[in-house]
Amino acid sequence: MQVSQELFRGAAPGIGLSEVAVSTKHKLSHLKVLEAESIYILREAVAEFARPVMLYSIGKDSSVMLRLAQKAFYPGKIPFPLLHVDTSYKFPEMIEFRDQYTKEIGAELIVHQNHEALAAGANPFALGTQKCCGQLKTKSLLDALGEGGFDAAFGGARRDEEKSRAKERIYSFRDAQGQWDPKNQRPELWNIFNSRIDKGESIRIFPLSNWTELDVWLYIHTENIPIVPLYFAKEREVVVRGGSIVVITSPNQLLPGEKTQRMSCRMRSLGCMPCTGAIRSYACTVPEIIEEMISFRRSERENRAIDHDEEGSMEMKKREGYF
C-alpha cells in the first residue's frame, strides 16, 4: 500500500502541488455549483435559440427554475414567456398561485388548454390516466409549442426523478412531432451544447438535470422561494382511493359511494387533482419538509399514477412527446 499512498499525495499529471493548493480557497458549495451550471444552461439557450419558452408547471421545481431564470438575466427581465399547460384538473391553489406570482415578478404567461378534448369530456376516469395525459398534457403541450413557434422549451425535470430521465441529455432533441428517440441521442460532452435544429424540430432543455429533490428543497429554503401552499401540511378533506390519499376540493370529485375524511396531509409533488395523491404529514414549513424528507424512504413520484401504469411508462410518454 505504500506505493499508492505515495501516489495519493502526488498531484495530477503535469501540475505541481502548489497549483492545486491555490484553488482550495475559492470553493463553491454543491448548491452554488448547481446554480451556476443551471444559469449557464439558461443563458446558452437564450443566446442560441430564436424563440425559447419555459414550461411552467407551478410545482417546486418550476419555482426553482423560475428563480434561476431571474438570476440568469438580472438586471434584465426573463427574456422568454412561461407556458402553463392547464389540464383544467389542477388544484385551485395552483392556479391562484400561478396568476399572482407570475404577475408579481413581471413574467409573461401563456396558458394553454386542449379545449377540443375537454369539450369532448376528457377526464382520467373515462379515459384512464394514460389517454387522459396524452390528450390534456402531451397533445396540448405539442399544440402550444407549435402555435407559439417555440424552438426550445425549458423543463424542470431532474435526472434523479425517474430511470429514463437519468439517461436524458440536458439538451434533449425532439423531431418535428416532438418525439424523443432515446437510442439516438446527441452525445453531450463538457458543457458544450449542440443547439442546431431544422425548421419544425425543437430542443427540450433541462436546466435542473443534476439537481436532486433534496437540492431543490434546500435551495427553496436558502433562497426563500415562494411555493404553492399545497406543499405544506394542513387538515384537508380527502378520500382514500386505491391506496392513495386524494384531496377533495369539490363534492363532484367524489366517486359513487365515497365519503371524505379530514386528515393532516400535504402534496409531495403537484399534478392533476384526481391523479396526484397526498401524503400524511405534519410538515408545515420548508425545514420541516426537509426533515421529513430525509427520514422519508419513499421516492416522490410514487404518488404519480402516470409513472406506474406499466414498467417503463415514463419512457413511453417521453417518446411520444411528454416532458
Partner: peptide, 9 residues
C-alpha cells in the same frame, strides 16, 4: 402566498 422560511426551533 406561502413563504418558505421558518426555522425549526
Amino acid at each position: 402566498m406561502a413563504h418558505a422560511a421558518s426555522a425549526v426551533e
